[in-house]
Design a protein around this nucleic acid. Sequence first.
DNA 1: GTTGTTGCAAACAGTTTGCACGAAA
DNA 2: TTTCGTGCAAACTGTTTGCAACAAC
Lengths: 142, 142
Amino acid sequence: MKTKEPDIVDLGNHFRRLGMRFTPQREAVWKLFRDSQRGYSIPEAIEVLKDQNIGMATVYRTVMALQEIGRLSWVHDQNGDHRYVACKSMHGHPLVCEKCGRVQEFVSCDLSVLERLLAVETGFTITGHRLEVLGICPVCQV
Amino acid sequence: MKTKEPDIVDLGNHFRRLGMRFTPQREAVWKLFRDSQRGYSIPEAIEVLKDQNIGMATVYRTVMALQEIGRLSWVHDQNGDHRYVACKSMHGHPLVCEKCGRVQEFVSCDLSVLERLLAVETGFTITGHRLEVLGICPVCQV
DNA sequence: GTTGTTGCAAACAGTTTGCACGAAA
DNA sequence: TTTCGTGCAAACTGTTTGCAACAAC
């Protein structure tokens, strides 16, 4: 009997805790994203996973589920549509390479000063933010 | 003869400078977005503009053109798809009300410290960022 | 007059849904 | 054994394209 990787066990528990089942398909979808630097758009993921006999409806449903439970987030590609990437940590933001699309997560973003200022100036109650930083990764700089 | 609003004249010049024509349709599309607090998704804009006999292909083409020349940008709605809003200024960022969708632009965002830190820590050359701040606007707080 | 733009409709791409079967718990 | 999840295909929604007529310059 094969030992499962810790993140797989953890994800299985996460699903079950929510009354959902942890199926081989869900495991396969998660692994695809977890092991990718650039993430995938849904059509791309469908293309890859169909070789494992995973139907497109399952891909849609699973990606949405993973996103809702906070395991996937998305970034924009050049065309403006979404590519999904695995979240390593809570409250992380993506640093995206504009050439190869590689995504590196960072956590140290302090927008509290800006948010306080905006609250005072606009009367809004600030509830959150979405931040993507763009750049060129070391590999693509050559 | 009717005097044109200054922003219309300016937009006309902007198009012509690029060798493009400034048609009544383009003017109408621009005005729709300019006069809206929440902006529109493309299907919404198509719906509104079809009463003015503007075809959907024209809406798509014009919104894309306005976006490319920096007159429109987009924000995300709850479903994660795009709503286009008029840019008042260059380098502005949107502050979006999560209840009513109203968008207020702000400019004072200083991410230079964060960006320098990321450059050192990751080896990326930072080229830009996308920031959306979310909140509840004064009207919706009641 | 020249050439970019428009509206239409058809083609296309992407997403959602209903359902019978299978498999996780 | 009891649901929930799956794959399939059909339906649907959103987007793009080709083209003849038109209008901005």
